[in-house]
């Protein structure tokens, strides 16, 4: 069936290119190309007399590309619907986070969600007034879905694992580094509040993987 489609596509393309050739050739004589559309089926037909080949050519096979610059993240199972803003590094080398506690931050020095590798989105667990955007991230279970969209395109990811790490012992390479899988890793804080350092002592990482169509 695919071969047939491809052959058909080829015929149409061949027809088009010939029609274009005619357009160019006849443009001197005609101000309005009124008769051009008629020419197309005719030239396509003439191609059909080509003898069939024993072995047929096949379309070039490329790695599928899924890739958005994230603008919105939706996690229905925990009621998250939030804007995503790009963030980079702080001067101390830590991943930055959005100032707005209701927004999430995409680490834009890493890869885009959908690409092979680890894309990372972080969000606050809470703020002085109450729950932050990722307050319920801990409730996510394997199989739960995450939607990330940007520029009119939406990608779906599925939770594959959740891990808690002491803040200073998180495996940065595994969370941010390259893998041939198309990962989106979500980060928030968890654990006790550390008065001295002004933050929580642990980090929750939810590993999610692209659901390919």
């Amino acid at each position: 069936m695919r071969k047939l489609l491809y052959l058909l596509l080829f015929l149409i393309l061949a027809g088009c290119s010939q029609t274009m050739g005619m357009q160019n050739g006849s443009s001197d004589q005609m101000d309005n190309g009124g008769g051009q559309e008629d020419a197309q089926p005719e030239t396509a037909e003439s191609q059909e007399t080509d003898e069939p080949l024993e072995t047929s050519s096949s379309p070039v096979i490329e790695d599928p590309k899924y890739n958005v610059i994230p603008e919105k993240i939706t996690i229905e199972s925990i009621g998250v619907e939030s804007a995503v803003v790009p963030v980079g590094l702080l001067e101390n080398g830590e991943m930055a986070v959005p100032e707005d506690f209701k927004k999430t931050g995409w680490f834009d020095l890493g890869t885009n969600p959908g690409n092979r590798g680890s894309s990372v989105i972080a969000g606050h667990v809470d703020d002085p007034t109450g729950e932050g955007v990722f307050y319920n991230l801990k409730d996510l279970k394997p199989g739960d879905e995450i939607q990330v969209s940007g520029e009119g395109e939406t990608l779906t990811f599925e939770v594959v694992d959740s891990q808690v790490f002491p803040q200073d012992e998180a495996p940065i390479d595994d969370i941010f580094g390259y893998t041939s899988r198309r990962m989106l890793n979500l980060i928030t804080c968890i654990g006790d509040y550390d008065v001295e350092n002004g933050g929580r002592t642990e980090r929750l990482v939810v590993f999610t993987e692209l659901v390919e169509e």
Binding site: E94, M95, D127, P128, I172, I187
Partner: peptide, 12 residues
């Protein structure tokens, strides 16, 4: 392009 530390996602 790797961070050296995890983000501060809970100031609170």
């Amino acid at each position: 392009d790797m961070p050296s530390g995890m983000p501060q996602t809970g100031l609170g």
